[in-house]
């Protein structure tokens, strides 16, 4: 018994060495897959969206082999720091709290506006019932604004809450809400002021992974310089979106 265990370990060990020598390390990109247009699952069942296209291009420029992994939003950072994947590209705003735990590349999406969407324009966003996704920076903002915060587990449910009257308005990233408002045929509309939250969206990495961070930073810079990033932003977020 003991002997078999030893042999298997030895096998696993030598196999590991051979693999490690033969291939470059694959970079695993963590995302949520439920936040269009940043990232979502397309009809074919693959990760798709702005971040998928951007991430693939970044990997190409940094000469890395990458693959995409889906992970629940709630545990997306703990799984990164325990090395289950190497980056996060999930529409994650750069905030001070997150920056204490993980590192961010420079932003690849300009500081985002968050916006309120309601079913009628008479809603007062500072005193009404506002829906937000649990544990997002938007939820924290609403709690402080004095409005009545009601939290749902998924972004989908927050919008559903406005449609069925549970909440007066939903507060979320404007770019997530915009396509929904457009396609709702007048049922939903933007209300109140837009609010700038967070410091843009960046790619999250482990703090110890400085090499990888430099590679991706360089790739983002080169995409910003030759205008490909702007073209991609316009493709996914429309002509009026903020660019670099």
């Amino acid at each position: 018994m003991k002997k078999t265990i030893l042999t298997t370990t030895a096998l696993a060990l030598s196999a590991g060495m051979v693999f490690a020598a033969a291939h470059e390390k694959t970079i695993r990109m963590g995302t949520e897959g439920a936040y269009p247009p940043y990232n979502f699952i397309n009809d074919a069942g693959e990760v798709d969206g702005f971040e998928r296209e951007l991430g693939d291009e970044l990997c190409l420029r940094a000469e890395l082999t990458c693959e995409w992994v889906k992970n629940d939003w709630d545990s997306i950072i703990p799984n990164l720091v325990s090395s289950n994947y190497d980056t996060i590209m999930a529409g994650m705003s750069i905030t001070d709290e997150r920056d204490e735990v993980i590192d961010f590349t420079q932003d690849y999406f300009p500081p985002t506006a968050s916006a309120y969407v309601a079913a009628s324009d008479a809603v007062d966003v500072t005193s009404g019932v506002i829906a937000a996704q649990t544990a997002t920076i938007q939820a924290g903002y609403v709690a402080e604004s004095g409005a009545t915060l009601v939290e749902f587990a998924t972004p989908e449910e927050t919008v559903a809450a406005v449609r069925n009257g549970e909440a007066d308005a939903v507060f979320a990233d404007k770019d997530y809400l915009a396509p929904l408002v457009e396609d709702s045929a007048g049922e939903l509309m933007f209300v109140g002021e837009e609010v700038a939250l967070g410091g843009g969206i960046g790619m999250g990495l482990r703090e110890s992974d400085t090499d990888l961070k430099e590679k991706f930073d360089a790739a983002i810079t080169s995409m910003k310089e030759d205008g490909t990033l702007n073209a991609m932003l316009k493709k996914w977020f429309g002509e009026e979106t903020a660019t670099y």
Binding site: I102, T148, L149
Partner: peptide
């Protein structure tokens, strides 16, 4: 849904897990 951040023990536990990332 949780109203005005009034939730049960798991709600607060995941609040802290989310804020401290631990």
């Amino acid at each position: 849904p949780a109203w005005q951040q009034k939730g049960d023990a798991l709600y607060y536990a995941s609040y802290f897990a989310d804020k401290t990332f631990n």
